Simulated scan of single mutants.
Amino acid sequence: MAAARVGSGQPPETVDIRGLDALQTATEKAPVTRIRPLDRLFALDTKLPKPHIPRALVAVDDEYPLGTPDHDHKGMTVLQQHVAFFDRNHDGVIYPWETYAGFRAMGFNPLVSFLSMLFINISFSYATLESWIPDPLLPIYIKNIHRTKHGSDSDVYDTEGRFTPWRFEEIFSKYARTHPQYVTYDELLEMTEAMRDAFDVFGWIANKLEWGFTYWIAKNEKGMVPKEAIRGVYDGSFFEVLEKQQSEKKYKKYE
């Protein structure tokens, strides 16, 4: 890697900056930069083409550079795919009863499904409306879901709802200390604390609830959340897996 030095009337000289201050990601005067290392990102571009460019249609990482196998993006952004599972009649609008039905389809009990419905539709409906006038039915319009992006989050979704690969990999570089492909509850808790923006109370609450929900649905028998399960939550494919598992359980009851 080289940097050009421009001189008056002279051809630019190049210098090797590998190992110099220009590429350092940690410093002793900011201990937090050593506690949350970025070492894993240095080799990312050898595994994943152009990881700095946000992807509109697929959630990719170094293991799945083409996204989730057999997952149909339907021409939607990754953020739209994240919520489209709850659009039960596929009309582009998520009403509260559809949110409730989606949680029930994933296996949540009626109380949790009802409380989740209230929080999601009350919090995010208004931002997606085409009008300034609130809709008492609390619909969420999927085409405008990018407007619901809040502070104190991971920034894996950009402001248009695209998926940013290096941001996703950054989570595991910084916080996955127990195992490089998993995060524990304590690591997720540390992550949500680290992401807090000053005075952003709504963002703090939303981020805690979202990652708490992710841990709840995606943890394995060891209490750890696999990297690929988290990626599946980002593009909504993991919700489909849970629904399929619930359907299979119901079917087995009649065998």
Rank of each mutant, 00 (worst) to 15 (best):
I133D: 04
T184P: 01
P37Q: 08
W216A: 11
R167N: 12
E248F: 06
D197R: 13
S131D: 15
A229K: 01
D155P: 00
Y251C: 02
L66V: 06
E169L: 08
E193H: 09
V60F: 03
E13V: 13
R5M: 08
R147G: 06
F168R: 04
E221K: 15
M224T: 04
S131G: 13
R40A: 09
S113R: 10
K219Q: 10
D197G: 02
V241P: 00
S152W: 02
I122M: 15
N220S: 14
Y254F: 14
P110G: 11
S8Y: 13
R162D: 02
R104V: 03
Q10W: 07
Y185D: 02
S116N: 11
I140H: 02
Y182I: 01
I122V: 15
Y100H: 10
L189D: 03
E210R: 08
R104I: 11
G75P: 05
D135T: 03
E170T: 10
F42E: 09
R147N: 15
A198M: 09
D200K: 01
T68F: 01
T159N: 14
A101T: 14
I35A: 12
M224K: 07
D186W: 14
D197H: 08
K249S: 08
V183G: 00
S237P: 00
K29Q: 06
W166Y: 15
P11H: 04
Y234R: 04
Y100V: 03
A176R: 02
S123E: 01
F202V: 11
I35G: 02
P65K: 03
G223Q: 10
D153T: 10
I94H: 01
G161M: 03
N220G: 15
T46R: 14
L66Y: 12
T27M: 14
G75W: 09
V6R: 14
L115M: 15
H90T: 12
P139H: 10
L189I: 03
T99K: 01
V241C: 05
V201P: 00
V112H: 05
P96T: 06
D61E: 12
H52T: 04
R36A: 06
A194R: 10
L23V: 08
A26V: 09
A56K: 05
Q24K: 15
K47M: 03
T148S: 13
L111E: 08
W166G: 00
G203F: 03
R36E: 11
I35M: 12
D186L: 12
L79K: 01
N121R: 05
D158V: 02
A3C: 06
F114W: 13
E63Q: 12
V183F: 01
E98Q: 15
L137Q: 13
V83S: 05
I133H: 06
Y141H: 15
P139I: 14
M76Q: 13
D155E: 11
K29D: 11
K249L: 14
V15K: 14
K252I: 02
I145F: 08
E170P: 00
P180H: 13
F124S: 02
A229Y: 05
Y126K: 11
P49M: 07
W204P: 01
V15L: 10
F103W: 05
